[in-house]
Nucleic acid binder design. Structure first.
Lengths: 349, 349
DNA sequence: TTTAGCACTCTCAGCATTAGAGTGCTAACC
DNA sequence: GGTTAGCACTCTAATGCTGAGAGTGCTAAA
């Protein structure tokens, strides 16, 4: 069994960088010429053979150059990555876009996905921030016609939900306003189950409304991180490794389908701010065998948090992508913590 | 110049049906055997040659069978289509799904797209219903923290919008409630510009809020039919004519990109209920050269209306698709007119 | 007007050939 | 012992060729 040496690390790094850049198997000869090295191809061949024995490289067929294995990429990401900070000009451009508009929570998430997809030139995804158990903040009841009422529910953390409901009998707007005031005074900061429990003491109308409020909160909680915003599919389809028609279908299916949310919620980092790199489905997710994910959790530690990240081919510029994901994650965290000040701490609980 | 005869119509119809079904150029010999006819291939050849001269058929190369031209498809849709009613069992399934849940307006639209994509096995799209000039119905102001306020705006026609805003100075919730009541009493049924005009007479706080209300309504109006929900992209990628990797990219670009809303809003039918079939971009839209659109306008004549339809390859089962689009359009029209009763007529104006 | 016959055209799949790139191994070299 | 040159070998991808198959257009006869 060979062992890793400094030179082998260097060779591995260069092979991977070259392959990421050019997309073609790296041969010993083109290796030395391309990097202008003073050693012979034969030496590189020996080193490559050793790296192959160690499992970091492979070759598609006898007379082809070397290609990184999943393990090789992982080693690269863990040991051979240099600076991953996003270049300042791009930071500024992103920051500018975020300071441009005052938006709704979900729109922020959508903006984050769009920005991420654009700066990395890859497919991006994000989930809106959710707490484990959402808490009631405010409700508003708007009478539309006799028994038809629009319920607007605001949760701690900034989520706003609307729901249409039909009452058992017509009720005046004034009565509805009194009811919503009462709920706002008494239920602030409660979870779905707590509201369910307390609603028993209310009169019929209040009970009905409170039950629906609890249901909506529960729906938000259950939805959890299943709601995934996506963008930049086209970037991924532009990658030469996915040029085949057959593969394209697979990519679209994987990226648009529900499997994405499952892998994302299972494999995602738990702590806010951390960046996780998933390579080739890590042997567990078959559809992601040819893909790499760069994921990060953003939000407030212990409070609401969401995920965002980038999906691309294994052959991706990890340093740049990681930098972009980390930066946008940071921005979104700032945003959510602002929101938490608004809806949680400051407003009492 | 040849002219159309009954037999040529029949031949054209059969050629197109056969091509739609099997996806391969139709030759004179396989034509007679497949349909078990008592005439010779040579006769069919003559008829096909005439149809080709008339511009309804073509052949990709000398020794291939005949393929319909855009003009051929158009003739087919206009003259040779039989029953286009959607089969009853499918009508019932769709109706069932629509009666299943009480939803938000935009969620109805999303449901319609999903149902359409599923029953036609094609890509589907829809825009939410919009009036030419949206009218104010109700506003609610929710104080979140000193100067930060959540504004919830309900428009005639069922659209609900939220907007965060920052006031110049802190304001009590009670003051906000008084203000929203006042706006609700005085502005019902007004358009953005009317509200803008009247807001001048209000005190500072009211003027600020009214201006934002007007802005939001204006944004909704301007957005118009640019907001397009889409679904079923994967169905389209499954079509054999789009198997090439190159083409797949084009399809995704066309369907996901902004060009869709432009063609949709330009070429869409004007009257509610009508079904329009666009074949091969009609020479005007280059990206749609290989695609057919089946579009319908739903909603309330003279009130809010939206578009829905299906995008597929030229080689599509027009009868079935048209039936499905018409049926879903009808359902959505019913829904919107219910909504209009709620928000418009009944509630006064 | 319809039909049979026939020469002609074009595509597509299969096959062999070849150039090119790269490897692994061995033996010599520092 | 690590490094290098040389060389035989392997595999891919592109090219050109061939034959089968399908279909057409034309002509002449029914």
């Amino acid at each position: 069994m060979s062992e890793m040496t400094a030179r082998r690390q260097a060779v591995l790094g260069l092979v991977i960088r070259s392959y990421i850049e050019r997309g073609q198997p790296v041969g010993s000869k083109s290796f030395v010429t391309h990097f202008g090295l003073d050693i012979s191809p034969a030496t590189i061949r020996n080193e490559m053979a050793a790296l192959e024995e160690m499992g970091y490289l492979t070759h598609p067929h006898t007379s082809a150059g070397r290609v990184p294995t999943d393990q090789g990429y992982r080693y690269f990401v863990e040991h051979l990555l240099g600076e991953t900070e996003l270049p300042l000009p791009e930071q500024l451009m992103i920051r500018h876009q975020f300071h441009q508009a005052r938006l709704e929570l979900d729109q922020w998430v959508r903006l984050a996905v769009a920005v991420l997809a654009h700066t990395t030139r890859k497919a991006a995804l994000a989930t809106p921030p959710r707490a484990r158990e959402s808490k009631f903040k405010h409700v508003e009841l708007i009478s539309l016609r006799d028994t038809l009422v629009l319920l607007v529910l605001v949760l701690m953390g900034g989520t706003v939900k609307q729901q249409m409901l039909t009452l058992d009998e017509p009720v005046e707007q004034e009565t509805l306003s009194r009811l919503s005031n009462e709920l706002n005074d008494n239920y602030k900061g409660l979870t779905a189950s707590q509201i369910s429990a307390r609603s028993r003491d209310l009169p019929a109308l209040g009970r009905q409304v409170a039950r629906i409020v609890a249901q909506v909160i529960q729906a938000v909680d259950r939805q959890g991180e299943d709601l995934v915003y996506r963008d930049g599919l086209l970037h991924m389809l532009g990658e030469p490794e996915f040029a085949e028609g057959q593969q394209v279908r697979g990519i679209v299916q994987t990226f648009e389908g529900p499997s994405l949310s499952s892998i994302v919620s299972t494999a995602a980092p738990v702590e806010v701010g951390g960046v996780q790199v998933l390579i080739g489905g890590e042997g567990r997710w078959h559809e992601f065998a040819d893909l790499a994910l760069v994921l990060s959790r953003y939000g407030v530690e212990g409070g609401a948090s969401g995920l965002l990240g980038v999906v691309g081919p294994l052959r991706m510029t990890y340093d740049r992508t990681i930098g972009a994901v980390r930066y946008v994650s940071q921005l979104m965290s700032d945003l959510v913590s602002d929101w938490y000040d608004v809806n949680g701490v400051t407003d009492g609980q």
